[in-house]
Amino acid sequence: KCTICLSMLEDGEDVRRLPCMHLFHQLCVDQWLAMSKKCPICR
């Protein structure tokens, strides 16, 4: 589950894993990281 948009991560979707190993939709986390340089879970 992407904790930014709260939707399930589905096969075939573009996802991004951060160095902390948390996984998000690529678009969601890219937009998040443009505003904050910290993982939305770890922050």
Rank of each mutant, 00 (worst) to 15 (best):
C39I: 00
L9G: 01
S7R: 15
K38T: 08
R43V: 15
D30R: 06
L33K: 06
M8R: 13
E10R: 11
L18P: 04
K38R: 06
E10I: 14
K37I: 05
C39A: 02
L27H: 15
E13P: 03
G12M: 08
H22S: 02
K38V: 13
C39P: 08
S7K: 15
W32V: 13
L9S: 02
G12H: 07
R16P: 03
P19L: 02
L9A: 03
D11H: 12
G12N: 12
C20Q: 01
A34T: 07
C20I: 04
M35D: 13
L33N: 07
D30N: 15
R43I: 12
A34M: 09
T3S: 10
M8D: 14
K37G: 11
R16Q: 11
L33D: 08
C5P: 01
L6W: 09
E10K: 13
K38I: 07
C42Q: 04
C2L: 00
C2S: 02
V15I: 10
L18Q: 05
M21L: 09
C28V: 00
A34R: 09
M21N: 14
K37A: 10
K37W: 06
F24S: 09
C2E: 00
M21G: 14
M21F: 15
M8I: 11
T3A: 09
Q26E: 10
K1L: 06
D11F: 09
H25L: 00
R43W: 15
M21W: 05
K37D: 10
H22N: 03
L9C: 06
E10L: 09
L33T: 10
F24E: 04
K1A: 05
M8P: 11
C42E: 03
C28Y: 02
C28E: 00
C5K: 03
R16F: 08
V15G: 08
K37C: 02
H22R: 00
I4S: 02
M21P: 04
R43C: 15
Q31P: 12
F24Q: 03
W32E: 12
L18S: 03
I4Y: 09
D11M: 05
H22A: 01
L18V: 02
L27W: 09
V29W: 09
K38G: 14
P40S: 02
D30Y: 04
L9R: 01
K38Q: 12
L33V: 09
C2M: 01
E13V: 06
C20F: 00
C20K: 01
D14K: 13
R17F: 08
V29P: 03
M35K: 15
L33M: 13
